[in-house]
Structures are given as C-alpha cells and as structure tokens.
C-alpha cells in the first residue's frame, strides 16, 4: 500500500511538469493571462465534479473562516502566472528546479519561525547544508541551460 502511494505521488509530480510544459506551449499562441485563466476555469470544472462525488467537507464554511486564510488564492494565481511566464523563456527543467528551490527555501523559513500555526523547526546544520546544495543546483541548471540553448542555436 505504502509503495503504491509513493508511486502515485511520483505520478503527481510528473503531471506538474507536464502541466508547465503544456501551458508554456499554449501561452505562445494564447497569451499569459489567457493561459492562466483557462487553467483555472478547467480546473474549477473538474473539481466541481470531483467534489460532487467525493467531497466530505463543507464549502459553505468558507463564510466563517478567518479572512487571511482566504487570501492564499492570490498566491495561487501569482504562482501560475509566474510559471506560464517563465517556461517559454527558460524552458521546462530550469523553471521546475527554480520553483522547487523557491518552495523549499520559503518552507524552511516558515518552519523556522513557525508561521501560520506550523510546527517550529529551527534551521540546523542539515538544513543549512541543504540551502547550499540548492544554491549549487541553481548555478548548475543556469550553466547547463545556457549551454544547451547555445547548442540549439548554433
């Protein structure tokens, strides 16, 4: 069971990079805002169906939660707008690695300060080393990408 779960999560990761590639392609003809709008609209359609069959929570409770929790939707929109902008310019892999680094670095910061009621996990030697490896990954992907783009042109 555990193994199957990990496998399906791996596939979840595959869909994320496929999404960025497809959206990058679509945006060349349709535009950045248009691509993001379409992604959100079709996502809403599919989730409506999923919720009708499998929803166990209560969407209407949205009116009772603290407002700051609802503000995350702006971040969701920004995330997709930025991705759709980046892919046509630097490619699929550089975009995905850079997203992950941004995600992990901020995740480490959130853990360190225990923002948003999360567990407080202070930065230790292991996490500091992780930051160094992420910086080197960013450097390598920039170099590698530049080289394969030059090869493609020349």
């Amino acid at each position: 069971m555990g193994f199957l779960m990990i496998l399906s999560t791996l596939i979840g990761g595959l869909t994320l990079s496929a999404q960025s590639a497809i959206n990058g392609t679509f945006s060349r003809k349709a535009g950045t805002i248009e691509t993001t709008l379409l992604t959100f609209l079709t996502g809403t359609l599919f989730l409506s169906i999923v919720i009708l069959f499998f929803g166990k929570g209560n969407v209407l409770a949205i009116l009772e939660v603290p407002r700051w929790q609802l503000s995350a939707v702006f971040l969701g929109v920004l995330f997709l707008l930025f991705i759709v902008m980046a892919v046509p310019r630097i490619g699929v892999i550089a975009t995905n690695i850079t997203i992950i680094i941004g995600q992990l670095v901020l995740g480490i910061v959130i853990d360190h300060f225990g923002w948003f009621n999360s567990l407080v996990i202070p930065i230790d030697a292991k996490r500091a080393a992780a930051l160094v490896f992420m910086a080197s990954a960013l450097y390598f992907i920039y170099k590698g990408n530049k080289r394969s783009m030059e090869q493609a042109q020349g």
């Binding site: 971040l75 997203i99 901020l106």
Partner: peptide
C-alpha cells in the same frame, strides 16, 4: 519569477 512562484506555492 519561477523562484517567487515557488515561494508563493509554499
């Protein structure tokens, strides 16, 4: 943009 996108996701 991609870096900020990842931070927004977190």
């Amino acid at each position: 943009a991609a870096l900020l996108g990842g931070a927004a996701l977190s």
